[in-house]
Amino acid sequence: MKARIAAVLAERKRNPITRILCYTYGGQTVYYESAACCDQPSNVFDTKGRLVCQPDGGITGKGDGKCPDFDKKKTNEKLVWQDPR
């Protein structure tokens, strides 16, 4: 996650600001990175930083379709980081 945070901070401040949240999903710990804007997808990463899926956003608003149940099955939400700028 340190690399993801560094990448966000290297860009212009996003509106809305970027947030990284931790959840339990599918029996594992995952990290949700909010989308930069409107039609862009949000990303879910595993603990090794590998992209698991994009649960929302994109043109359809439904992400990449690889985790359509993410909103219903995610649990244990914790805020890990949000852009302080």
Rank of each mutant, 00 (worst) to 15 (best):
D64L: 02
Q40I: 13
R14N: 13
S34Y: 03
L9P: 00
L51R: 06
K72C: 00
Q82R: 13
G49D: 11
I20F: 08
A36R: 11
L21F: 08
P55W: 05
D83N: 05
I5T: 10
A3R: 12
D39G: 12
G27W: 13
N43T: 14
V44Y: 03
Q28W: 00
Y25C: 08
Q28P: 00
P84I: 01
I20L: 11
Y23W: 07
F70S: 05
R12C: 04
S34W: 02
G61H: 07
I17D: 01
G63D: 04
G61W: 07
C38V: 10
K78A: 14
R4K: 13
T47F: 00
D83H: 06
C22F: 00
D69T: 10
Y25G: 01
C38I: 05
V8K: 04
C38P: 03
P55I: 07
D46S: 11
K62C: 00
G63W: 09
L51V: 09
P41C: 11
Y32N: 07
G63N: 07
C67N: 05
R50D: 12
G63C: 08
L51N: 06
K2I: 14
K74Q: 14
Y25I: 06
R85Y: 09
G61F: 08
M1V: 13
D64Y: 02
V30C: 14
G63R: 06
L9H: 06
D56H: 01
P41K: 02
S42G: 15
I17C: 06
A36I: 06
K73E: 12
P41T: 14
K2M: 13
N76Q: 15
V80R: 01
P84F: 00
L79K: 14
G58D: 06
